[in-house]
Amino acid sequence: MKTEKKGWKEIPIAGVCWKPSTEYLTGDWKTYKPVRDPEKCKLCLLCVIFCPDGAIHWKPEENDLEFDYNFCKGCGICANECPFKAIEMKL
């Protein structure tokens, strides 16, 4: 695969990183995928706090949670820490 690379004149001085990591999707690392049961979920938001990847977003205007599978690495911390057992890891 051929990719366009920048020449030495275009790259920033001292090799400063110039792209946000949100352009790099880590979602394809996962085997298991967290699935939330909205019936059991009490919106305690502990999963938002504990997620190492910041892949669970709290949407205050909709009063709901959203899992961002583009970044979720499938570690299962959210399912393990959920006090209501509302998250299940599925293949």
Binding site: P52, P60, F71
Partner: peptide, 28 residues
């Protein structure tokens, strides 16, 4: 907890720490 969840992450998604990384949660 809602105020904390609403605050934007300064350590953003897309970093390449292992799945289940403890330090990544700590820094966030």
């Amino acid at each position: 907890i809602r105020e904390i969840a609403e605050k934007p992450d300064l350590f953003m998604s897309g970093h390449r720490a292992c799945a289940g990384c403890g330090p990544a949660t700590v820094i966030r």
